[in-house]
Design a binder for these strands. Structure first.
Lengths: 338, 338
DNA sequence: CTGAAAGCGCTAACAC
DNA sequence: GTGTTAGCGCTTTCAG
């Protein structure tokens, strides 16, 4: 593969000149530039990005790093949409973007800043971070720029992009209440998860506003999995039948699907006998029968915004901030007005 | 951020020695190694991977490159599962893996080998390649190792991993026929797509084996989109009702979903009035009502296998070959025995 | 406008 | 065992 030296030699100039030709400097004659570019393309020269970033001070490469990629969780679709958004921005801003996976073990071995250094990164988007991840604690005092997605983080070099989970879940709950549901079971997410806590506090806010009680037995603690949601809903229905809740307020579309499955299997119908709402607006939510009323997070745009914020922070550290994106209630057929 | 120099200085040795300490050479005393490692971890030194690969001859980094990431297509879930599998192998084999996106325009500007050079890649997995992509033609004579996923490619440095689309679709068709369907409508994929052609020839094989006719009006050409499948199925049903096909053989789960939607909307039921089969085994296929009988490609394992093949090719060019992975018929509720 | 040379962080001979 | 040094491919002063 041709290097800058080969080009220089063929063009009868020095490597410095070739470099100038390629980097849009103006202190070079159009004639030499053209002849250099021509020769370069003839012999198929492309600059080696890593050699470049090594010799330059400024790092222009960024990354999206996914924590816990190999874990079994339901964020796959979200991660991919995020990637799409981030790549879109990277393309527009002419930034090199790569996606890496980093597990919990590696996080213990090296800090986020070290990860960036090792990969010559100017900064990265962090996705899939959980409270138990080592980076969760260290990140806010990182010296390397970072934008965390879906988790609230703020430091001199780190910002975050998310939606207001509490408000969104409040809206979702409100929608149920507006449809005259006041006995509402909650399919809670993973108990320790930050998002679960946020969402729960949104639900409570709505409940309190309307003077609605939510007794203990109406809170079903899942791990965000469909199976667990299915089992708990089934148990609940076996015990209470139609004397209990009239609606299931789920902290994710996946748990909503589990709930719907259980409801149907018990011979009930959605939304005629029970209403169900989800959260995330995965593509699945469109295809179930009935479609699931849910909260859309506009994930692709979130990725775009996160990448944009990162590039701002890289240019100017004081740009570090938290961005809260709007959410949207998506109404489909899974709720009946009582 | 600390460099190898800093470590050398603090340890009172030269950079060469530090390098030796870090790369498991044995011509170094255990004492100095330990002291170097200790100091390194104290000042938080981690080697810069790019500087390393620059100074070494052998490139050990690999990538998964996704063509057409930003295009609107339904392969998102597949791409992500593939990534998971590839990262799994990379982790086991201790390879650095990054994911890049490359659009059609960039493919025109630089060859695959140039892309690898520019990113200091030892090779890459290529996903999402279409026949219209520039790389599709150039790849087989590439000097840089490559493993293409889902498209048949073979060259001195390039191999591929896929399933036998023709055989798989044959199986799928056979399943319908075994259930006594002999008037079968085909929801064809994108007309020029290689996969469509393969699958069609599998269907034809099964048809011919059983002496079944498939008249022109029973072939509905979609673009793999749900909407198009929905429209065409609806038209078909409006025209023929229950006098036409008894089953819809779809080239993807997404088109199957479109078909099911149309069937239901016309007041018919699946599988009571019409049977439907899909292809891909997306997670969606489990959640529809009824679940869709489909072909599973074991996508994550495919990613794993592809990464493994790539590492083999990188070690030994003669390892370049095509690997055909087994597929599996997944039976769910969308087919009725006549 | 262009050449020369130092240096980015690291490895790999080659000495001693 | 360890130091020395020449690169890897590129950018960026500093001269001229």
């Amino acid at each position: 593969m041709a290097t800058i030296k080969d080009v220089a030699q063929k063009a009868g100039v020095t490597v410095g000149t070739v470099s100038r030709a390629f980097n849009g400097y103006n202190d070079i004659s159009e004639k030499t530039r053209e002849s250099i570019l021509k020769i370069a393309s003839e012999i198929g020269y492309v600059p080696n990005l890593h050699a470049k970033s090594l010799s330059m001070k400024k790092k222009t490469n960024i990354a999206m790093v996914i924590s816990g990629l190999l874990d079994e969780h339901q964020t796959d679709e979200n991660a991919f949409l995020l990637m799409k958004g981030a790549y879109k921005f990277a393309q527009e801003a002419n930034l090199e973007l790569a996606t890496y996976a980093i597990d919990r073990e590696s996080q213990k071995k090296k800090t986020y800043a070290q990860f960036c250094y090792e990969h010559s990164l100017g900064g990265a988007l962090m996705f899939g971070l959980r409270t138990i991840d080592p980076y969760f604690k260290n990140l806010r005092k990182s010296t390397a720029p970072c934008v965390a997605v879906d988790v609230s983080l703020k430091g001199p070099n780190v910002g975050s992009v998310m939606i207001d989970d509490e408000a969104a879940f409040d809206d979702l709950t409100e929608y149920l209440i507006r449809n005259n549901h006041n006995r509402i079971a909650v399919l809670y997410g993973r108990r320790e998860a930050e998002v679960s806590i946020e969402r729960w506090s949104g639900a409570r806010r709505a409940f309190e506003r309307h003077g609605i009680e939510c007794p203990k037995e109406q809170i079903l603690y899942t791990d965000f999995s469909q199976d667990r949601a299915y089992c708990l809903t089934k148990e609940y229905l076996e015990r209470y039948g139609k004397t209990g809740a009239t609606a299931f307020l789920c902290m994710s579309d996946i748990t909503a699907i589990g709930a719907i499955q259980a409801i149907k299997e018990m011979g009930y119908r959605v939304p005629n006998d029970f209403s169900v709402v989800g959260y995330d607006n995965l593509s699945i939510a469109r295809y179930t029968e009935p479609g699931i009323t849910t909260i859309d997070q506009n994930t692709q745009f979130k990725g775009y915004t996160a990448a944009k914020l990162l590039s701002e922070i890289m240019a100017d550290r004081t740009a570090a901030r938290q961005i809260v994106l709007p959410h949207k209630l998506v109404v489909r057929g899974s709720v009946r007005k009582l």
